[in-house]
Design a binder for these strands. Structure first.
Lengths: 344, 344
DNA sequence: TTGAAAGCGTTACCAA
DNA sequence: TTGGTAACGCTTTCAA
């Protein structure tokens, strides 16, 4: 690699001057500027990001910690982060935490020692206590408010309400909920949304709520149990899309059909939902937007334009597709009935 | 951040001694060692990766360039790379090239100026010419041989043969191929595999080959056209799984069923294939293994244990599921008939 | 067994 | 408008 010294020698100036040319600050005579530029081209010189970082304590790098990149929700998020980061001159280091606190902590340590400028953390297991020693800008995804860090999320509660009401509107008379893990924030909120709608209905029964771990396989098992233990279920609100697909498979294995016998709606709006047959209705989160906003926020905090932390809540949107279309024949449309709740 | 100097002061020794303790090299008296360790703990000191890098020209970072992280093939790959990298003390910078040469080149430049130690490149548009100025270890995914770089890939040709023969075995009498983009290496190879099996059959016709861009939407259109222009197609080999799902949707929209009317097989073995109904038969690539091997290879090259480049070809495996199961009722099994071709 | 100091490639301050 | 140089945090060589 060619260094600034070699450029200086070639151009017949000092390294200080070359530095000024590179950063376009300080006074440089026009002719000197050109001479230096020429030398830079000639030698195909690129400043060492390492050396620059050592000086100014900035690496132009942000860390993104995800529970699992193979969960289809996250690639879209990662893409948004990467794109926004890049277009602001940052690069992204990706870490898979596998959702365990131990890994998260370890990775945060590692990111700190690599001097990333900030961290975006999508964590299921976040507990404020555990992150006391993190003194970098950090924005949280899908977590509740926290005085120290900005957070980006959707109104999960309202999404739960929306999904449940939609099933009701479609004529469902007994609606079950396949909830995510009990200790996961988003899952709790979605469940509460569901409960708020159905708890006073005369058919409601606690046994209509089952739990699974947000994964497909687990959801299949849970759905089968749900169907065995309850008679007359004709609608299921699954806590995420992956589990909704599990529902579909379980229902299929019972020889029942969707949406005729049982309507199914998911949550997240991953692209998978319109790949399957029947296409899956869902409560869509603006995933890309969320990643974009998280990145913008972290960059603001890094660059010091914004030190106070912000709480940003996005709206969810009901996407009706075949899996809940009980009013006409399936296969017709893919309408996004936006039901903004007006916040933001 | 606490520096080595502060540790030295606290322990009452010089920075050189602290450095020796950290790196466990050179002579250090037992008692001194302990004293220093103690100070390190006390201050919660972590060496600055930046400063270390400036010295030894190694960043312990590798760059992974992918065409599109939202394509389900790549997250699994990325996960493998990240895990193997981490367990060797490396971190991974992820870049989305969107498949364009311009972005790839730009990102390689950027990665070089960040002094990554090596690059894993999954490229559709790789042309040796364009990468002449890359003087880092680089391993290529899914590309043909190249004297300068190691490459990791599967036997795409053989996979094409395997898929086509499988459809034949299932009793298909007129098999179409939905191929990937003409200029993409993997797509060409798979197509050739198909052709080698069917070109001498009396029913074969060039019109049985259609092209799409490896994406779902495009595949739906192409399949519809295929079905409109050809009579009697009862088997389709799609160039990748995403397109196979497109086939399924197109066939469904014609009111036909899979596998009874038309059997469908994909290529890749992404996890999507067992999420959909009917579950999709496919030619599975050992994606995780490939990522793992790519990472091991790049690390070897970085650490200088291996300077010569290697060409590693993995075997593909036929996974038969419902979408080609014409011999018995669907829904029974998920068998992996391994047909090794003995290379590697 | 330990410490002093040079050097890694920049930036920024101070002088000239 | 330019150049010399300290400083960033660490490793490594050389001396002690």
């Amino acid at each position: 690699m060619v260094t600034i010294k070699e450029v200086a020698k070639k151009a017949g100036v000092s390294v200080a001057t070359v530095s000024r040319v590179i950063n376009k600050n300080g006074y440089v005579k026009e002719s000197t500027f050109e001479k230096v530029q020429h030398a830079i081209q000639e030698l195909n010189y690129r400043p060492s990001a390492i050396a620059v970082s050592l000086n100014n304590k900035k690496t132009k790098t942000i860390g993104l910690i995800l529970p699992d990149i193979t969960n289809p929700f996250f690639p879209e998020l990662a893409k948004a982060v990467e794109e926004v980061a890049n277009s602001n001159g940052y690069t992204m280091i990706l870490c898979n935490s596998s959702g365990t606190l131990k890994n998260e902590i370890e990775q945060i340590e590692m990111l700190q020692s690599k001097y990333v400028d900030g961290i975006i953390l999508a964590s299921d297991s976040y507990v404020e206590e555990d992150y006391k020693h993190v003194n970098l800008p950090m924005v949280l995804l899908d977590r509740g408010a926290n005085p120290r860090n900005s957070s980006i999320r959707v109104n999960n509660y309202y999404g739960g309400v929306l999904a449940t009401e939609h099933l009701l509107e479609q004529g469902c008379t007994k609606i079950a909920h396949l909830a995510g893990p009990k200790d996961v924030f988003t899952a709790q909120q979605r469940l509460e949304g569901y409960q708020s709608v159905v708890e006073d209905m005369e058919w409601f029964d606690k046994k209509l709520v089952a739990y699974a771990n947000y994964q497909l396989e687990d959801a299949i098992t849970a759905t089968k149990e749900l169907l065995n233990q309850n008679i007359g279920i004709d609608g299921i609100f699954a806590g995420n899309d992956l589990m909704a697909i599990g529902c579909l498979k379980a229902i299929h294995s019972f020889g029942l059909s969707v949406p005729e016998d049982i309507a199914v709606i998911g949550f997240d709006g991953i692209s998978l939902t319109n790949m399957i047959i029947p296409e899956l209705s869902t409560i869509k989160q603006p995933i890309y937007e969320m990643g974009k906003e998280a990145t913008n926020q972290i960059i603001k905090e890094i660059e010091g334009n914004e030190t106070e932390s912000r709480d940003i809540e996005f709206d969810v949107t009901l996407i009706q597709r075949e899996s809940t279309n009980r009013k006409r024949r399936p296969g017709c449309e893919d309408g996004a009935k936006s039901k903004d709740n007006g916040n933001r």
